[in-house]
Simulated scan of single mutants.
Amino acid sequence: MYYVGIDVSKRSVDVCLLTDGIKGKRKTKSLPNGLNSAQALAQWLTVQKRDPSQAHIILEATGIYHEHLAYGLHQAGILVSVINPHRVREFAKGMGIFTKTDRVDAYVLASYGCLKQPESWTPPAQEIRKLKALLQHRDSLLSDKQRTGNRLDTLKSTAAPKEVVESLDSIELNLKEELARIERLIAEHIDKHPGLKNDLKLLKSIDGVGEQIGWNMLTIIRGNNFKRAEQVAAYLGVIPVECRSGTSVRGRAKLSKIGPSAIRAKLYMGAITALRHNSHVKAHYERLLLKGKAKMLAVGAAMRKLVHLCYGVLHTQQPYDKNYGMVAG
């Protein structure tokens, strides 16, 4: 087994091959990013007299730009790991590497693979991939609609030409109609797949989880190889990070806020709702307040509790029991 780190950008992938561990020689190459990037990488490794089937490839999760390469490598039977970028940056700091270039990042990724031995990446099922794409498109449309609405509100309070206002009115209407159509497609897609339909029903059995959180948690939990609820919480950035050093530094703990911020925003609203309607979330929140914890830290804990409940119902395939573990007063 040998290790290859790859820094992925929109148009290219920078490759670093470790020939003999992190202290050995490195070979580097820049290849185009696209449909054939996995094939091009395998050919280059063969030229280097390396068997592609013995490679362990390490990539960062870079939005969508890594997908052609990751899916191509998996289909070719080549071991690939997709790593959280924050973990890689912390690893680089630990190695004393603060420079950030494509070649350096590729070397750091190869070293991470060599020393950490990360788990292999398995692509999510096709129905999850489609659901994720539909949800991302929905969020983009919603953002466009809100931005257009804000422009309209501003212009209507000024002496703007009516043609401009009418144009924005038309755009807002079209966005509203398209948003409704995409939401119907999301519902129909879930309805066509019994597994997704059942999982969404389980998620929505949790007080505080509606369609928005249900849809997104479904893609996150079913689209990743999480083995514990804590891993989901860490991925979403709702775990506490303490600031302590020696006897003098005692900073307040705060959420790590690593991962998708848009989903954290949805979880925040869900937690606020759950504080009124979910006995487990409310009890956890109030216990922390009684211990003197800051209100926002307690809200963060409520978000984390909601994530744990979502993982729990999908893991056990049992609906949420609002009375589980609650002591009658």
Rank of each mutant, 00 (worst) to 15 (best):
L41R: 04
A42Q: 14
W44G: 06
H66A: 05
Q43E: 15
L41H: 06
I64G: 11
P52S: 10
T46K: 12
N36E: 14
Q54W: 07
H66R: 02
L59P: 03
L45V: 00
L41T: 01
A40K: 14
T62M: 04
A40G: 06
S53A: 14
Q48P: 13
H66Y: 14
P52D: 02
G63T: 02
H66W: 13
R50W: 06
A61L: 00
E60H: 06
W44R: 07
L59M: 01
S37E: 01
E60D: 08
I58L: 07
G63P: 09
A42S: 15
T46W: 13
R50L: 11
P52A: 08
S53V: 11
R50E: 13
W44V: 02
I58F: 10
S53K: 15
P52H: 05
I57S: 01
H66D: 05
H66I: 04
H56N: 15
R50S: 09
W44S: 11
S37L: 00
T62R: 09
A38I: 06
Q48Y: 01
R50F: 04
I57E: 02
W44K: 10
T46N: 08
I64L: 05
S53I: 07
A42P: 02
E60S: 04
K49W: 03
S53L: 15
L45I: 05
H66K: 03
G63M: 05
D51A: 10
A42T: 12
A61C: 06
S53P: 01
A42E: 08
S37P: 11
I64P: 08
Q48H: 09
G63S: 05
T62W: 07
Q48W: 05
P52V: 09
T46M: 11
A40L: 15
V47R: 10
L45K: 07
Q39S: 14
I57V: 13
D51K: 12
Q48M: 14
H66L: 08
K49I: 08
N36S: 12
E60V: 03
A55S: 12
K49E: 15
H66P: 12
A40H: 14
G63C: 10
A38W: 00
A38G: 04
Q43G: 12
V47N: 03
A55V: 08
A61M: 04
A61F: 02
E60I: 06
L59F: 00
N36G: 08
I64H: 08
Y65P: 09
V47D: 07
L45N: 08
K49M: 09
R50P: 00
L45Q: 10
A38F: 05
S53D: 11
R50D: 01
Q54Y: 10
K49R: 13
A61N: 07
T46L: 14
N36Y: 13
A38N: 00
G63Y: 00
Y65I: 01
Q39H: 12
T62F: 04
I57L: 07
A42R: 12
Q43F: 14
L45S: 10
A38Y: 02
S37I: 00
L45E: 04
Q39K: 15
A61S: 15
Q54M: 11
S37C: 08
P52K: 08
S53Y: 09
I58D: 01
N36P: 00
H56R: 14
D51S: 10
A61Q: 10
A61Y: 05
S37A: 12
W44N: 07
A55Q: 11
I57Q: 01
I64K: 02
Y65M: 13
A40T: 09
W44L: 05
R50A: 09
L41D: 04
D51H: 12
S37V: 03
